[in-house]
């Protein structure tokens, strides 16, 4: 699989990252090298292998639904770059 500048542009948009033209240039070379290296995984027959997404044999971790202390909203909002009253403030989302 080869990766070109258009692919990276598209992926950078999905990842919400602005890239400079120089960054786009460097990344397309570096990511191609890295993906070529990763392609060695294609040598292995994985047809009958189950994926491991998590290493421990735990699935759903439940606990009783008992209200407890949580972070006071003011403490959380104190670190926001911009707030209005008790809310995080962002540019208009709905046109």
């Amino acid at each position: 699989m080869s990766i070109n500048k258009d692919t990276i542009k598209n992926v950078a948009h999905l990842a919400r990252i602005d890239l400079t033209p120089e960054e786009l240039e460097t990344l397309s070379v570096q990511l191609k090298d890295i993906l070529d290296f990763i392609d060695k995984l294609k040598k292995i027959d994985i047809q009958k292998i189950q994926p491991t997404s998590h290493i421990l044999p735990i699935n759903n971790v439940f606990r009783d639904d008992i209200p407890g202390d949580s972070l006071p909203y003011n403490k959380a909002l104190d670190v926001a770059p911009e707030r209005k009253g008790n809310f995080f403030s962002v540019p208009k989302i709905i046109e």
């Binding site: 990766i3 692919t7 990276i8 992926v11 950078a12 948009h13 999905l14 990842a15 919400r16 990252i17 602005d18 890239l19 400079t20 960054e23 460097t26 990344l27 570096q30 990511l31 890295i34």
Partner: peptide, 22 residues
């Protein structure tokens, strides 16, 4: 979002986030 992440992340962070998103 794009400008914040473009300016805030260093080169390796951009490389990894883009590779992972891909």
């Amino acid at each position: 979002y794009k400008k914040t992440r473009g300016r805030g992340f260093g080169q390796e962070a951009k490389r990894r986030v883009i590779l992972g998103t891909f």
